[in-house]
Nucleic acid binder design. Structure first.
Length: 606
RNA sequence: GCGCCCGUAGCUCAGUUGGAUAGAGCGUCGGCCUCCGGAGCCGAAGGCCACAGGUUCGAAUCCUGUCGGGCGCACCA
C-alpha cells in the first residue's frame, strides 16, 4: 500500500536535514482538520522552535520552500506554524485503491493463549470477552505478518472439574441427551455447590472430591473431560473461534515438565527450601529482586506437603511455551468447522513443533495480573530477560451483567449459548421485517447476531470494564457490527447491479471530486489502524476505525447537493462511474477484511 | 495499609508519539426516500475532559497531590 504519510515524513526529514537540523524530531504527519487548507500537515516547526531559536511560522516557511514535493503533491502551504500539503485528488484516490493482502511472514512465532475455560460447565458471558479478544488479536497478528499459534489450555486437574464429575456420580445422573452436555453437567455442579454451602456437609464430601481429583491427575477420567470439552468447543466454534492446539495440564505434569521447571528454578539463587519459619518445608521463590514493594516477596511453588501450586504448573507451562522445556507429545484431536485441524497434547502422541515461541500473549482477565507477573519473574530468575520481555499479558477487565458482577452462585449469569441464541433470534426478526425476500435468512441472522455480540466485546479498550446489557450488545443500530455489515451489504448491492448491467468502465482518476477524496483518505487509514492495533495488541483500534470507515461510506452514499444525490455510482458519467465503482469495491473489500480480522462475517445481503 | 487500573456530553464509549475549534453511538428535538438498500443520512441541544497544582510555544494526553470507582496483595485455582 502506498503509504502517503510515510512518504511525506521522508520528504520533510530530508528538507530538515538540508536546513541543518542535526537531531531530527519525531515527524508527525496528520490529516488536516476539515476546515483547514490542505490534505495532510505537520506541526514539526513547533517542535524545532526551541532548537533553532526561531518562531514556528518562520521555520515552517523555510521548510515549505526547501521541501521536495513527493509524487502526487501539488503544493505546500504554511498555515500558522503548520506546513500543509495539498494532494492531487487523482493521486489520493489511486493510492487508496491499492490491494489488501496479508503482510509477508516474519521470523519468530507468537503464541496466543486464549479461552482456557475450566472444563466443568458451559461458557458464560465473562468468557465471551476472552474468546472475542484472543481470537481477534490472533487474526490481526497473523494478517500483519506474524506466525501465530493459537493455544487453548485445558485445566483438567482443577478443582472445578473434579467437583463437576463428582456431582454426576454423587447424584447418580445419567445423560439423556436432552440438553447440551456442558449445561447439563453445569447444573449438577451448581446443585453440588448448594449442598456444600453447608460447611458440615462440605467437610463430609471433601474426601470423595479429593479422590476424583486424584483420578483426574492420574489421567483416568480423560474421556469424561473430553466430553465436556467437546460441548464447550461447539460454543467457541459458533463464535467463530478456532485453535491450533490444546494443552492439558495433566500432560504437563505427567510428562515431567513441572519437575524440569522446578529443577531449573532450584539452580537459581532465588529459589529455596526454608528449614524454619512460615515456609518451613515448602519450595519458595524470592521475587524481591524483580518486584519491588512486596510485603512478603516469597511465593510458594511446592507446598510443605509436596504438592505443586497452580503457579508452579503455570510457570512450567510458560517455560514450555517459550522453548525452555520439551517433552510434550501431540496428536490430532478433531477437525474444526473451517477444516483447520485441532491438535491436542496426549500421552500417546508424538513430538510436534508446537510451542518454542519467542513471544507469548496470554489472554487472561486483569485479576490474574500478579500471577502473570510471576511468570515473567520466573523467566528472569532463570536468566532469560529476553523471554520475560516477550511474555505479554493481555489483561482485560471483567464483564458486568446489567451493571452487576457475574455470579454463578447467585444465579446472576448468562451462558454464551443463550446469548447467541437470543442474538440470532433478534436478528431473524429484524430480517423478517426489513428484508423478507432475503434468500438465506437463517444464515444471515447467524452472521448478524454473532457479529453483534463479538463486536460488543472488542470495540472497547480491554482495560475498561464493560457492562453486558442485552439491549446494547444486541443492538443492530449505531456503533455495532450490523452497522458495518449493512454498509458492506449496501456496497455489495451496488457492485452486483453494476455487474448485472455490465456498467463497469475504465476509471478516470482525473474526475475525482472532494467526495471521493474524503472517502479515499479514510480508506488510507486502514493500514495504519491495523498496524496500531497489532502494536498495542488490542482489536479495539481496528474496530473503531471500521466504524469511521462505514460512517464515511454512508456519508458518501447519502451526500446531497441541492437536494439531489451528489455521488451516484451507477448513474455517474463514464469514467467517473468506473472510478466510483473501484472505490466502492475497495470499500467493500476493506470492510470485509476488517470484519474478518475481528472474526465477524460480512454478508453480501442482509 | 501497599500496589495496579479507571474517571471525557443525561447514558455507553472513541480521542494517534503532547498538536489546529475535544468526537461518535444511544436518548431528546427537527429534517431527508421521484435517488444505487432508511439496520442509513443531515442538523440542533448537550462538555470546568473528576478536582487542584506543575512541565510546555501547546495538555483530555506527561508529572505531583486530592477525591471517587474497580481489582489485586493465600502453602485457593
Amino acid at each position: 500500500m502506498t503509504d502517503v504519510r510515510a512518504t511525506l515524513k521522508r520528504a520533510v526529514a530530508s528538507a530538515l536535514e538540508r536546513m541543518g537540523v542535526s537531531e531530527l524530531p519525531e515527524i508527525d504527519i496528520q490529516e488536516t482538520p476539515p476546515d483547514k487548507p490542505g490534505d495532510y500537515g505537520t506541526p514539526v516547526a513547533f517542535q524545532l522552535a526551541r532548537v533553532l531559536r526561531k518562531a514556528p511560522p518562520l521555520i515552517a516557511r523555510e521548510l515549505a520552500e526547501l521541501v521536495e514535493l513527493p509524487a502526487g503533491v501539488s503544493r505546500v502551504e504554511v498555515v500558522g506554524g503548520y506546513v500543509n500539503f495539498f494532494y492531487d485528488p487523482a493521486f489520493l484516490v489511486r493510492a487508496a485503491l491499492a490491494p489488501l493482502a496479508p503482510a509477508p511472514k516474519q521470523d519468530g512465532k507468537v503464541l496466543v493463549e486464549h479461552t482456557s475455560v475450566n472444563p466443568n460447565k458451559e461458557l458464560h458471558v465473562g468468557h465471551l470477552r476472552n474468546v472475542a479478544l484472543g481470537d481477534a488479536i490472533a487474526r490481526i497478528l497473523d494478517f500483519t505478518g506474524r506466525r501465530v499459534e493459537v493455544l487453548n489450555y485445558i485445566d483438567d486437574t482443577g478443582r472445578q472439574s473434579a467437583e463437576s464429575l463428582f456431582a454426576l456420580e454423587h447424584y447418580g445422573l445419567r445423560y439423556e441427551g436432552e440438553r447440551k452436555y456442558d449445561h447439563w453437567v453445569g447444573e449438577a455442579y451448581v446443585r453440588l455447590h448448594q449442598e456444600m454451602s453447608d460447611a458440615e456437609r462440605r467437610a463430609e464430601l471433601e474426601p470423595a472430591i479429593a479422590a476424583v481429583l486424584h483420578r483426574l491427575e492420574a489421567g483416568e477420567l480423560r474421556g469424561e473431560i473430553e466430553k465436556l470439552l467437546a460441548a464447550q468447543l461447539e460454543t467457541m466454534w459458533s463464535l467463530g473461534a478456532e485453535y491450533d492446539v490444546l494443552v492439558w495440564e495433566s500432560d504437563i505434569v505427567r510428562e515431567g515438565l513441572l519437575q524440569k521447571a522446578l529443577a531449573l528454578l532450584e539452580k537459581t539463587p532465588y529459589v529455596s527450601r526454608p528449614t524454619e519459619g512460615k515456609y518451613k518445608g515448602a519450595l519458595v521463590m524470592d521475587t524481591s529482586a524483580f518486584i519491588e514493594g512486596m510485603e512478603d516477596p516469597y511465593l510458594v511453588l511446592l507446598r510443605s506437603d509436596g504438592t505443586a501450586t497452580y503457579t508452579a504448573k503455570d510457570i512450567a507451562f510458560q517455560f514450555w511455551k517459550m522453548g525452555l522445556l520439551e517433552g510434550l507429545r501431540f496428536k490430532p484431536f478433531t477437525h474444526q468447522p473451517s477444516g483447520r485441524e485441532l491438535y491436542t497434547s496426549h500421552p500417546e502422541g508424538e513430538p510436534m513443533p508446537f510451542g518454542n515461541a519467542a513471544e507469548t500473549i496470554n489472554v487472561i482477565d486483569v485479576r490474574q495480573s500478579y500471577p502473570q507477573q510471576v511468570l515473567k519473574v520466573a523467566l528472569e530468575a532463570v536468566g532469560r530477560h529476553d523471554l520475560a520481555a516477550g511474555a505479554y499479558h493481555l489483561a482485560y477487565e471483567t464483564v458486568l451483567l446489567e451493571g452487576r458482577p457475574l455470579s454463578g452462585r447467585k444465579g446472576h449469569t448468562v451462558s454464551v449459548d443463550e446469548v447467541l441464541e437470543e442474538a440470532v433470534r433478534r436478528a431473524r426478526a429484524v430480517i423478517a421485517e426489513k428484508n423478507p425476500e432475503l434468500e438465506n435468512p437463517g444464515e444471515v441472522a447467524r452472521m448478524v447476531g454473532v457479529g453483534a455480540v463479538r463486536f460488543a466485546m472488542v470495540k472497547t479498550e480491554p482495560k475498561k470494564q464493560i457492562d453486558f446489557r442485552w439491549d446494547q450488545a444486541l443492538s443492530f443500530e449505531g456503533d455495532a457490527a450490523p452497522y458495518l455489515q449493512y454498509a458492506h451489504a449496501r456496497a455489495a448491492s451496488i457492485l452486483r447491479k453494476a455487474e448485472a448491467e455490465s456498467l463497469a468502465d475504465e476509471p478516470d482518476f482525473a474526475r475525482a471530486t472532494p467526495y471521493e477524496v474524503d472517502l479515499a483518505k479514510v480508506l488510507l487509514r486502514f493500514g495504519p489502524s491495523l498496524a496500531k492495533s497489532a502494536e498495542l495488541k488490542t482489536p479495539h483500534v481496528l474496530a473503531q476505525y471500521l466504524l469511521d470507515l462505514a460512517a464515511a461510506w454512508n456519508a458518501y452514499y447519502n451526500a446531497k447537493e441541492d437536494g439531489r444525490p451528489a455521488t451516484p455510482v451507477l448513474g455517474a458519467p463514464d469514467g467517473l462511474r468506473g472510478l466510483r465503482l473501484a472505490l466502492v469495491a475497495q470499500l467493500k473489500q476493506t470492510l470485509a477484511a476488517g470484519l474478518d480480522l475481528l472474526g465477524i462475517a460480512a454478508p453480501e445481503a442482509m
